[in-house]
Amino acid sequence: MSVLVFANSTDGKFKKTAFEVVSYGKKVAEQLASNLVVVTINAADATELYTYGAEKVLTVSNNSLSTFNAKEYASVIAQAAVKENASIVVVDSSINGLYLSPLVAVALEADYASNTVSAPSSINPFTVKRKAFSNKAFSNTVISADNKVIGLAKNSFGIHENIVSGALESFDPTVAVSGVKSKSVERVTGKVTIADADTVVSAGRGLKGPENWGMIEELAAVLGAATACSKPVSDLGWRPHGEHVGQTGKPVASNLYIAIGISGAIQHLAGINASKVKVVINTDPEAPFFKAADYGVVGDAFEVIPKLIEKLKAFKAA
């Protein structure tokens, strides 16, 4: 018996969520007194994972897997699980992780617990805590199926160092035939994406118009942050749809979320609640966002933001 973790890489490089799922897998393996196996696909340097407790790493190097394909990747993971006799498979909640997890679950006849936020509170019955109702509550879910796929919510368990002397083993699974083919990728390059960002700078209708986003971009640049916006802002065409965050937009689980001129409607908060630290800047002290935030400034964005940029630049330079 073992715990299998899929450590996702993009262009050969691991993102932080890969280290988080490995940290998590290590913890679960300890709880079950079993061993941890990590599977990687075309990763440049899988030994990086030893730092987080990966004792054994299966490395798959295969050119036909160079672009992500959910069915192909899911079949690789399922074959690794069978080979390693793993009854628990852990996958991150990246867009690609969420795409392939249900397919792995069906292949293994496993049950799938998405949105898991913590290590099992009990092994028997196997119980994990999951997000529910758009972050407004948690459910303690008991999984009774023998095989389990756990989708770990981003930034929930954290990255924990646990250095082991691991070993790599090359693994050569059969690649499933997929009826879905990638034709092209359209990506804005050189921008921090909301999914990857530690900090997200987000602005709402309080900014009055698209011409005022210069200072938002600049604040984001100073902080190495991604930019985001509320729904009306993207509906009005002030900002691209890809920046819309909230319940019907992208989820945000960053370390720091700065909301500027956003009222804090329940649907907005639902999507950003998972962020660790929230800062609100708003002229209206009664704006609901102040109830959800950790730090707040009551003030006019057009005065506060330029000042904040100057001060942050000085702080960074110091």
Binding site: N140, T141, V142, S144, Y295, G296, V297
Partner: peptide, 23 residues
């Protein structure tokens, strides 16, 4: 799978307000 129980997030502490002149 079955849900053994639900829980709500722990109540959050009050927001710390910072003066706009004291960034």
């Amino acid at each position: 799978t079955s849900i053994a129980s639900f829980e709500k997030p722990a109540p959050k502490g009050a927001v710390k307000l910072v003066d706009a002149d004291n960034l």
